[in-house]
Design a protein around this nucleic acid. Structure first.
Lengths: 135, 135
DNA sequence: GTTCCTGCAAAAGCTTTGCAGAAGA
DNA sequence: TCTTCTGCAAAGCTTTTGCAGGAAC
């Protein structure tokens, strides 16, 4: 089962309605794993759905994030990016071209000190620098 | 030499003028290591400097960040926080009380895969969950 | 037939910009 | 004196909210 079908099933299970807009947004983020911004998703899908509004994109992504089906990335200073891959992994942002890359990370290997008594529920790792193309 | 004096010397070295407002902001963030927001810094210092404007707080923090003397934290969804400690360490945000805690971290222990050919210049680690008081 | 969703317009909140007067060196 | 900084007002951006019409079930 691919990601899109999995997400659709998850929506069904949670009684979240499968509107045309939601399905298209789900399809887009499943097939375009480029950590798109709201604006990117909106401008791409508007070609197919001319009546689409940015509000709906925001609403949908908030719904998906609350349901735990997408993860919100805050690697940009100003705008959010969205990731369908909710497994733990790192994000690298190239400061030259602005591209955001995934990389594998072993969270358990990370040695921390000073979190005794804390309940850690989420771990985000953001690296910045230059990607191979921009070096 | 304490942090405040060190920062003042750094400004002198870089020919950044030591205005009354800048010195007070430096003093505040040196003595209050609570990762304050612009609003926090502004409202606290306004008691001492009634004419202070938020624009100046923004200008100053941007200047300090460009000079590498403070680090901008983006652990909040909506607003930036500022940290005088520019050494590598992790930040934990309690999702109940909103407090941001520092913790020690050994970046070299972190096992990554897929960053061959990348030049990593900055590493940010953000954890979220519940702090001991809120559990 | 209900309930929930969409999309427009407006508002909210953080941050930046333009600029005249003030302060630092 | 010359340059830079301050602070007000206004603008710029992303994101949220209110609400009437429309779609999902």
């Amino acid at each position: 089962m691919d990601t899109f079908e999995y997400l659709v099933q998850e929506l069904r299970d949670r009684n979240i309605r499968l509107s045309h807009q939601r399905l298209k947004i789900l399809e887009y983020i499943s097939n375009n794993r480029i950590h798109p911004t709201v604006d990117k998703i909106y401008s791409q899908l508007q070609k197919e759905i001319p009546t689409l509004s940015k509000t709906t994109v925001y609403n949908t992504l908030n719904t998906l994030a609350e349901a735990g089906l997408v993860k919100v990335l805050r690697i940009e200073e100003n705008e959010a990016r969205y990731d369908v891959d909710t497994k733990n992994h790192g994000h690298f942002k190239c400061e030259a071209c602005g591209e955001v890359y995934d990389f594998h990370i072993d969270m358990d290997s990370l040695l921390c000190d000073g979190l005794e008594g804390f309940k850690v529920e989420e771990k985000d790792v953001y690296f910045k620098g230059l990607c191979p193309n921009c070096r």
